[in-house]
């Protein structure tokens, strides 16, 4: 444990990498948490993340030698949000229109996204050399700017934190967010109040899909600077865990993501240093999640027992 965390501080590159790893996790965690507030399960953040990555790389490659870098970045970001939103919104629409099970649809949509990515990487997006299923590298002009020189930390991290705060504001301070939570916690009472939950299903999934897709954009233009087949295959699953750890709270997601980022980076270093397999950290991450979920139930049980004991005492007194 000591080595795990100690090693994180050995140089600024390693330390900054924690936040690099945390960035896509924040987006996928937000994607899960957002629909979760409407009592919907978006298990397909991984697929939405890939859709975002494809859009980002495609748009960047297409525009980078036609438009100035900054403009290309903005356009790419907007297009990613749009396509990711549509990809996610489709799940919401199927739920609203046919009452399709959003859990299954979102899960399966990941495989469609994955297949789409594989196909594009072997055809339209394949590198000019034509050797590997990956794209050409992006021009430095369309990279998300590095914040600290000598590290990989890029502006995507700042955007992620701002997005978390923005989503928190949206959920807890605006009427739209209120309606989303109202639908999640009492669908019938919400409908009785004139809130059309079917529309909100689509809205929630649109936002959710856009969030995960934007994570793909941040990862492609911020870290990878190209698209490689099957990269970051576990951000979707980890995002679900983080959202649960943070109890669905967007501010909590910032910290939970950084914790997961630290464990990831630490795990890799541990593997290099001591020959301990880095999968040990994944085991730890899994245990953390299980215990968090267990703690919730144990706490509830304990509270109930305490209340009863208090009553008994009050009665006998």
């Amino acid at each position: 444990m000591g080595t795990l965390f100690g090693s994180l501080f050995r140089d600024s590159y390693t330390f900054a990498d924690i936040f690099v790893k945390a960035t896509p996790l924040m987006f996928t965690a937000l994607a899960f948490a957002f629909t979760f507030q409407a009592n919907l399960f978006n298990i397909g953040a991984q697929g939405q993340f890939y859709i975002g990555a494809i859009t980002a790389v495609g748009c960047s490659l297409f525009l980078q030698d036609k438009l100035p870098g900054a403009l290309t970045l903005v356009l790419t970001g907007v297009l990613t949000i749009l396509l990711g939103g549509l990809w996610g919104g489709m799940i919401g629409w199927l739920k609203a229109k046919f009452n399709a099970n959003e859990f299954l649809v979102s899960m399966m949509s990941t495989y469609v996204a994955l297949a789409l990515m594989n196909y594009l990487l072997r055809t339209f997006l394949m590198e000019t050399k034509g050797e590997y299923p990956q794209t050409d590298p992006l021009d430095t002009a369309v990279w998300l700017q590095t914040i600290i020189p000598g590290t990989r930390l890029h502006t995507g991290f700042v955007l992620a934190v701002l997005t978390c705060i923005g989503i928190w504001l949206l959920l807890y301070k605006t009427p739209l967010g209120f309606r989303i939570r109202a639908v999640g916690q009492g669908k019938d009472a919400a409908a009785m109040a004139g809130i059309n939950y079917k529309t909100l299903y689509i809205v929630a999934f649109f936002v959710s899909g856009a969030l995960a897709a934007f994570g793909g954009f941040a990862e492609v233009n911020g870290v990878q600077h190209m698209l490689v087949q099957g990269f970051n295959p576990d951000v979707g699953a980890a995002g679900i865990g983080i959202a649960i750890l943070a109890n669905g709270n967007p501010i909590g997601i910032i910290f939970a993501s950084i914790l997961f980022g630290a464990l990831k980076v630490g795990g890799t270093i541990m593997g290099q240093l001591s020959g301990i397999p880095s999968s040990i950290t994944e085991l730890m991450l899994g245990s953390v999640m299980v215990f968090v979920i267990l703690a919730y139930f144990v706490r509830e049980k304990m509270e109930e027992r305490r209340e009863k004991a208090k009553l008994k005492k009050a009665v006998s007194a």
Binding site: P175, F178, R179, Q185, G186, A189, M192, A193
Partner: peptide
């Protein structure tokens, strides 16, 4: 319980429920 209030929400939020638009 089902149609009048959103049980896990605060009273303020429930007061707001039908005027959210």
């Amino acid at each position: 319980h089902r149609y009048g209030l959103i049980m896990p929400m605060k009273l303020t939020e429930n007061m707001f429920l039908r005027s959210s638009f």
